[in-house]
Design a protein around this nucleic acid. Sequence first.
DNA 1: AATGAATGAGGGTTCATTCAT
DNA 2: TATGAATGAACCCTCATTCAT
Lengths: 205, 205, 205, 205
Amino acid sequence: MPRWKNALQTNDEIQQLKRDAVIREAGRAFSKRGYHNTSLDDVARSLQVSKGTLYNYVTDKQEILYECHQMALDIGERAFKQARQQPGTGAEVLENTLCSYIELLTGELGACGVLMEVDGLRPEDRAKVTARRDVFERNFVAMLQKGMKDGSLRKVDPKLAVFTFMGAINWMPRWFDPAGRLSGKEVARQMTDLLLTGLVHSAHG
Amino acid sequence: MPRWKNALQTNDEIQQLKRDAVIREAGRAFSKRGYHNTSLDDVARSLQVSKGTLYNYVTDKQEILYECHQMALDIGERAFKQARQQPGTGAEVLENTLCSYIELLTGELGACGVLMEVDGLRPEDRAKVTARRDVFERNFVAMLQKGMKDGSLRKVDPKLAVFTFMGAINWMPRWFDPAGRLSGKEVARQMTDLLLTGLVHSAHG
Amino acid sequence: MPRWKNALQTNDEIQQLKRDAVIREAGRAFSKRGYHNTSLDDVARSLQVSKGTLYNYVTDKQEILYECHQMALDIGERAFKQARQQPGTGAEVLENTLCSYIELLTGELGACGVLMEVDGLRPEDRAKVTARRDVFERNFVAMLQKGMKDGSLRKVDPKLAVFTFMGAINWMPRWFDPAGRLSGKEVARQMTDLLLTGLVHSAHG
Amino acid sequence: MPRWKNALQTNDEIQQLKRDAVIREAGRAFSKRGYHNTSLDDVARSLQVSKGTLYNYVTDKQEILYECHQMALDIGERAFKQARQQPGTGAEVLENTLCSYIELLTGELGACGVLMEVDGLRPEDRAKVTARRDVFERNFVAMLQKGMKDGSLRKVDPKLAVFTFMGAINWMPRWFDPAGRLSGKEVARQMTDLLLTGLVHSAHG
DNA sequence: AATGAATGAGGGTTCATTCAT
DNA sequence: TATGAATGAACCCTCATTCAT
C-alpha cells in the first residue's frame, strides 16, 4: 500500500495542478478586465510567483487563452450532456441546461468571460475553437428547435434567441460577485427563469 | 441667398464630420475586437489616412473611448426619453424603451460594444462615465419597479433583470450584421419580445 | 525721386523683415525654453500665423537655429569691434566690451540663449558656427592676455576666465526680464562691475 | 563573520548601483546635449543595455530628470552645510561654499547641467524642485547679505550676483573635461577666486 | 523549479515637413 | 502668400518572452 494513502501527489500531478491554477487565475483576470488589459505580471502577482515561473507551465499567453476557451467550452458541453440525460420536454431540457451552465460558470468564474476574445488566439487555435463553438451553438439551436417542435417552446428565431442567451450569460463576469447578495445557484435559477419564461409557449396559451 | 444653398459645408462642419468618422470607425473596431486589441493604425487604415492624421481630430486614444461611451449613453438616454413620453403600463413603457434602444444601437453599431471597456478610460472620464451609467441603471431599475408595482410586470430581482438585459444587448455587436438576414428594426422587435414576454406578469395568469 | 520717399518697402524688404521676425521670435523661444522644447507651432502661434507660413521664409528649423547662432555671434563681434575702436588699457577695453555685449544681448534677447544648442545644427552649419565661435573665444582670450601684459588685469587662466564670463552671460535669458526691476543697461553695468571687480569688499580698500 | 567580508553586494545594493548608473549617465548626457536632445536609446547605448532595461530601474524619463535635479540640489545643500560649519566672515564663508560647490559638481559631472531643464519635469515634481531651488537661492542671497553687513563683501545687488554666479557654474558641464589640463579642485579654486576677487588687477594693489 | 534581469517588438504620441487649395 | 490637413519618422513606454543563475 502506498505511503500516505496517495495523499501526496506525484510530481506530474503537482505540475498539472499548478498549470491549472495558472489558467484559472488568468481566466479570472481575462474575464474581469479583458485579455489585452491583463498582463502576465498581473497574473503572476495574483499567484504570488514571478512572471518567469508561469513559463514553466504554459508556453505562452496565447496558450492560456486557448485553454480558457477549452474550459469554457467544456463547461458548456458538460451542461448539455447532463441535461440530455434527463427526459422531459424541450423546454424542460433547455431549462436544465441553462441552469446548469450558468451555475457551473459562476463556479469557474474565469472561464466564460474569455469567449469574446477570439482575436487573441493564434490562427490554428482559433480554427479549433471556432469549430467547437459552432457545434455548441448548433446544438443549442437544435435544442430550441426540438422544443418548438414538441410545442413546449414558442416559435421564435432560434439563432437570435441563442445569441441573446449567450450575451446575457457572457456578461455575467462583469457583475457577478461570488461573495455578493446572490449565490451562484440562486443567480442561475432566477436568470434561467427570466430568460425562459418568456420563451415558454404556454405563456401565450 | 447663400451659394449652393449651403450644401457646401463650412470648414468647421467638415472638421466635425471627420472627427465623428474617426470616433465612429474606432467605436466599430473597439466593439468588434476590443479596445486594447485595436491599434490606431488599424483605425487609420480603415479610414485610409495615416495614424498621425487622427490626432488632428482627437487628442488621444482615451478620448476616443470616452466619446464612444458618451455616444452609447446618449443613445440609451434618448431611448428612455422617447419611451417616457408615451403613456402606458410599466410593461409597455419598458417594451418601448428596449425596442428603441436596441434599434438605435444597431444603427450606431460602434457605440455599444465599448460599454465594457471602462478600464481604458482616464480616471476623470471614468468617474463621469460611471456616474452617468449608474444613473442609467437606476432609471432602468426604477422603470422595472414601477411595472412591478402596477402589476404589469412579474416580481423578479430588478437588478438581476437589468444586468441580464444589458448583457444580451451589449453582446449584439459581436454577432449583428447590418447587411444580414434581419434588419435592425426586426432584431429590436424580436429581441424585445423575447426578453419581455418572460417578464410580463400576465404570462402566469 | 521715389514715390512715398521710399517709406513703402519693396517686396523683397518685406520678405526680409518677416524672415527676421521669424528668426527673432524663434530665438526668444529657444532661449527661454530650449531648442527641442520649442515647436514651430509655438513660434507660429506667437507670430499669429500658421505653421506652414514659416516655411515661406526659412527652409527648416535647423536653419532658424543657425541664423540665431549667427545673430548671437554678430552681436559678440560687434561688441568687440566697438570696444576696440576706443583707446585704453586692456582692463578698460574689456570692461567696454563686456558691458556692450551684455547690453546688446538684453536687447536681442532671443539670440544668446541658443549658444548652447550646437547639437541641433546640421553638420556643415555646426562646423561654421564652431569655427566662428572659436575665433570669438580666441579674441576674447587675446584681449585678456593683452590686459595682463599691460598690467591692468590680474594674471589668471584666461581660458577659465572666458568660460566663466560666457557662462554668466549665457545664463541671462533664463532670468532676465526686460520688464523687470533692472533695465538692460543697468544689468550690463552691474554685471560687468561684478565680473571685473569681484565681490570681495576689501579688494577696494 | 560574513563571507567575503561583505564585499559582495546584496541584490538590493546592485539594483541601487544600477539605478544610480542610469541616472548618472543620463544626467551626463542631459547636461551635455540637453534633456530633449537625449533619447533614452542614447542613454541605453552608453550603458550598453537595451532601452527596455532602463525601465527596470526608473519609471520614466521624467523621473530620471527629477533625480538629476535632486542630485544637483543635494550637492548645493551639502556645500552650504559644510561651509556653514566653519567660522569666518561672510566673505570667507562664501568662498568656502563656492569652492566646495564647484568641486563637488566637477565630480558629479552629470548633475548640474540639468538645472535649466525645468519644463521637462512633471508638474508635481516641478513644484518640489522649484521650491527647493528657491530655498537654495534665498540661502545664497542671505549669505551674501550677511557678508555685506559684516563689511567683508561689497554692496551689490545680491540677486544679480547670485544669478551671475549660478550662470558661471551651470555652464561648466559645457566645457569642463575631467581628463583635461585643470583638475576639478584646481578649477574650483581658480573660479572661486575669479568670482570673488574679480579680474581687475589694481584691486589688489 | 523559481527568479529577476534583459530583450525587442509593437503601440501611442509628437512634430518637422510637404502640399493642395 | 497663407492656410491647415496629411504624412512619416522618431521617441517614450509596455510587455510577452528568454535566459543565466
